[in-house]
Write a protein that binds this DNA or RNA. Structure first.
Lengths: 331, 331
DNA sequence: ATGAAAGCGCTAACAA
DNA sequence: TTGTTAGCGCTTTCAT
């Protein structure tokens, strides 16, 4: 079959151990020998078998990434951050989509542990006891990215969603002292619960009584945004502004408003969340919360490498900064 | 350390071989025995080691996917198609970004072969001799997705870019018998060469003499589109329509036109390519070529499974249908 | 239907 | 500096 370390050893008149040392850059090899071995490796076209190596060394230099949906503009940037840092540290990543389904998540964790990944970056809605149990069945580090952990046991990288939502809502209230609408996805999804809390807190601090009719739930998609805003506009007194849980949904909201013959921001202001690329691809461009998605992925992966190397980490829970980015969809 | 097949065998009073059979669903096991083994597996929390299994069986149930950029809206949908079908056939996928850099691509192929993937889905700009060589150093099947192979040796899944571009251009010419502008990325990138050929052929068939000044190259990004269209509008006689190589770029083109105080489609028509999600997130919504990205990924992966199972395939080169989707950016 | 045993290709003591 | 050798955890003949 294919060339093994044994073939190289024979051809170079050395032992397997020496070849192994050369391949792994072990300094205890005489330069002459190294050169000779390297030459025969080249000549034979030897390619180390990472599976065998993994079995012997108990390290696969592969990490798992569990992600809700790679085709989402939000998560794909996160994934890029993870990948880039993984590559930088010579890891490969096995990526799998969970669609935020708990059973899929649990199953994926299992599969990845079977594959002996050296660590896992997990992105999802929420962490439950069951997740924790599943993680604990193996001894590999796990880092959460853009995922909140109610049990607060796992290392994680996030922004402060609640404060961000608070700021967005306050920003909207500042101008016109009225309750903005809030268009969002399910509470169990992607920190939406925290956003809701921030929204409510901002209202409270501004002494505005919460009218739940102005809170509309729908899918976090473009069409979900359109549908939701239609519902909002049908209300007897529709609000002068809307805070939307994601940018893509917010773009739908803007278009839904425009399709009703209203103007953004003149008639209704719109505030998004995430600053994905679509935010500047709408007219008016979207005011939003800048969440450093790429960085969240990158920092999470970096954190994971630390755990995998058994370095000690100072911050197990990283909170990355966010900020309000004003564009043209608000006054 | 952790539970091995040996532990299970001992606890269940059977041999390793029997446990292996149970785990692998081999029918040659007495039901009683199977039950007993299953019970101890459960009790011990045994989890098969896929690395050891891979070494022994020479199959990893893992495939590699080399992709230009997972954060691109185009490729991330492709990736989702790949992932879904991979999951369906019990494969995991190692995903890596190449940024269309040839050296990265070659290196990634090498790494994946080291990891003993059972197959590779490759997405990139163009396939060169060097790629072919690298692929041939191992004995695993490779399928190209949305990637053209000038050497035409590898199985692939594509749409007919040239015809699609021909149709788009013809569509634009039909109305106003004038040469549309063509805004595109580099020729070596992502089938842009083929699109150019289709564009030129359409002009020729319409007896319009090609004016190269109307062909503008820039990055295939939103900002690239803006910059390119500014350049186009600065021409003494700017064209009545533009064909743009990708949707994201086309959205930039639309906004660039609008920012100059011109209207789409009244003053200039815009035609995109790919039908990514942004196409319906612009106003006016974008007329474009529907390219079934998810399906390209899915079909490519399905094709790969056939090769991996040594089934025989009837079409080694799959061309998926495309179509013109008229929206509001053209008259 | 079950077991014994020989690898799979490599790493990592331990010896020399 | 180099070689010997015993695993790593599993699959897969080949016996029985």
């Amino acid at each position: 079959m294919s060339i093994t370390i044994y073939d190289v050893a024979r051809e170079a008149n050395v032992s397997m151990a020496t070849v192994s040392r050369v391949v792994n850059g072990n300094p205890n090899v005489k330069p002459t020998t190294r050169k000779k071995v390297l030459a025969t490796i080249e000549r034979l076209g030897y390619r180390p078998n990472a599976v065998a190596r993994g079995l012997a060394s108990k390290k696969t230099t592969t990490v798992g990434a569990i992600i809700p949906d790679i085709s989402s503009i939000f998560f794909s940037e996160l994934a890029r951050g993870i990948e880039d840092i993984a590559t930088m540290y010579k890891y490969n990543v096995i990526l799998s989509n969970s669609d935020q389904k708990k059973d899929k998540e649990i199953h994926l964790i299992d599969t990845m542990l079977e594959k002996q990944v050296d660590g896992i970056v997990f992105m999802g809605g929420e962490i439950t006891e069951e997740h924790i149990n599943q993680f604990s069945t193996a001894n590999v580090p796990v880092v959460l990215a853009a995922t909140n952990d109610t049990t607060d046991t796992l290392p994680s990288v996030n922004i402060d969603y609640q404060t961000a939502a608070y700021e967005a809502t306050s920003h909207l209230i500042r101008k016109n002292k009225q309750q903005p609408g809030f268009i969002t996805g399910g509470e169990h999804i992607q920190a939406n619960g925290l956003k809701y809390e921030g929204y409510v807190k901002a209202l409270k601090d501004a002494n505005i009584e919460l009218d739940e009719k102005l809170v509309i739930y729908n899918d976090c998609t473009y069409n979900g945004g359109i549908t939701a805003v239609q519902q909002l506009l049908r209300l007897s007194e529709s609000p002068p502004s809307v805070f939307v849980a994601t940018d893509e949904m917010a773009v739908g909201v803007i278009h839904g408003i425009q399709d009703e013959g209203l103007r953004v921001p003149e008639d209704i202001e719109v505030f998004g969340f995430n600053n994905t690329r679509v935010a500047m691809m709408v007219r008016p461009t979207l005011t939003t919360i800048v969440q450093p998605m790429y960085d969240i992925g990158a920092v999470a992966m970096r954190l994971l490498t630390k755990y995998m190397n058994k370095e000690d980490v100072d911050e197990k829970t990283v909170v990355l900064p966010h900020r309000v980015l004003e564009r043209d969809s608000t006054k």
